[in-house]
């Protein structure tokens, strides 16, 4: 019994060859290599690195494949994902999608909050929801996502220097006034649920 239990724990964080749960076990080992930058269970503690646990499987799968096949620009992740097979990326997406979403709500001034909310209700709410916790199907939750990370992503959308295939997101980001994008990011970053 104990062996079985430990094997289960191992599959949660480790990885194996052989045995009945080969596929699953291999994936767990791969997932552990993500912890260095995205935290255990995909809960990041660094504000420029996104939390990824609990994001929709189709979102995770799509962005990783797009990076791999140079359909979407990244700076670090596009290099990282090229070392993994499509099956591995699919399994990683499934693994992180199964983790619970853990918001890391960040403090923000009432002024920025108000400004952010107004920008959000005009440009973001349609897909992401008013607090970011109840988005459309396939759209990532962003309540309590790191504001710094979201600001940087918005800059990527706005700069025109990155291949960003999501047209609706690109349009919304580019239409925002310069102060609106960071305010929206901080507003969502402040949300708990």
């Amino acid at each position: 019994m104990r062996k079985v239990l430990v094997a289960l724990a191992l599959t949660a964080l480790g990885g194996f060859t052989g045995g009945p749960a080969t596929a699953r076990e291999g994936i767990e080992a791969l997932a552990r290599t993500c912890n260095n930058c995205h935290g255990i269970g995909g809960v990041s503690v660094g504000n420029s690195m996104p939390s990824i646990g609990g994001l929709p499987v189709e979102y995770l799968r799509t962005v990783m494949k797009q990076w791999k096949y140079d359909e979407r620009s990244a700076i670090t992740m596009n290099r990282v994902v090229k070392g993994f097979s499509d099956d591995e990326l699919d399994a990683l997406a499934a693994y992180f999608a199964k983790q619970p979403w853990k918001p890391s709500p960040q403090r923000v001034s009432p002024e920025v909050l108000a400004k952010g909310k107004s920008a959000v209700s005009e440009k973001c709410e349609d897909c992401h929801g008013i607090t970011g916790s109840d988005p459309d199907v396939g759209v990532p939750k962003i309540n309590g996502q790191w504001a710094k990370y979201m600001e940087l992503e918005l800059e990527k959308y706005r700069s025109g220097e990155f291949k960003m295939p999501h047209r609706k997101m690109k349009k919304a980001a580019q239409e925002a006034k310069p102060a609106e994008a960071p305010a929206a990011a901080r507003y969502y970053g402040a949300q708990n649920r």
Partner: peptide, 25 residues
């Protein structure tokens, strides 16, 4: 360190050896 930890835990529990993967950033 993660490779060693997973490998040792498997060994100490009589489980098959895990497949290692090493990354750097």
């Amino acid at each position: 360190a993660k490779v060693v930890a997973a490998s040792l835990v498997a060994k100490l529990n009589g489980l098959p050896p895990p497949k290692p993967i090493y990354t750097n950033a």
